[in-house]
C-alpha cells in the first residue's frame, strides 16, 4: 500500500468523523423552535454537511487508487472514532457496553467487507422485449 493511499484513507476516516461531529454539534445547537429543515441551516450543521460531501468525494478518489477490500475494513474504524469524538469533545457518557458495541460493529463491518466482492453473474435485463429491441437498435 503506497503512501498516497494511506494519506487518502486517513483523510476519509477523519473527514467522516469531523463531518458527523460538526453535524451533531449543529443539530443540537439549533433552536428548539426551529423545524427539522431550518435546523439544517445552523452554521455548524452546514459545515458538517460540507465536510460529509468532501468525505464522499475523497472516498471516491480513494476507491480509484485502492482496493475496496482494503478501503471498507479500514474505514470501519470510523464507528469507534465517532464514539471517541462524542466522548472526548461533546462530553457524552460512553458506557463500557457502548464501547463494546462500537468495537463489535467495527469488527462486524470489517469481517463482512473482507469477503470476495464477486457473486452471481448479473441476470438478463428485466426490461420488456420492446425496450430491449429499442436499446439494441
Amino acid at each position: 500500500m503506497n503512501a498516497k493511499a494511506l494519506w487518502h484513507t486517513a483523510g476519509v476516516v477523519l473527514l467522516n468523523a469531523a463531518g458527523n461531529f460538526a453535524l451533531s454539534v449543529g443539530m443540537k445547537r439549533a433552536a428548539a423552535a426551529a423545524g427539522p429543515i431550518m435546523a439544517l441551516l445552523e452554521p455548524a450543521a452546514m459545515g458538517g454537511i460540507m465536510l460529509l460531501i468532501a468525505w464522499m468525494l475523497l472516498r471516491l478518489r480513494l476507491l480509484q487508487i485502492a482496493d475496496l477490500s482494503f478501503v471498507l475494513p479500514i474505514t470501519a474504524v470510523g464507528y469507534i472514532l465517532n464514539a471517541a469524538m462524542g466522548a472526548a469533545f461533546l462530553g457524552e457518557h460512553v458506557s463500557l457496553t457502548r464501547w463494546a458495541g462500537a468495537v463489535l460493529i467495527t469488527g462486524g463491518a470489517a469481517l463482512t467487507s473482507l469477503t470476495p466482492a464477486e457473486g452471481a453473474p448479473a441476470q438478463q435485463s428485466e426490461l420488456p422485449a420492446k425496450g430491449r429491441q429499442g436499446e439494441a437498435a
Partner: peptide, 10 residues
Amino acid sequence: RIADLSFAVP
C-alpha cells in the same frame, strides 16, 4: 438532534 453522536453513528 436528539441522540448522542456515540450512539447515532454505531
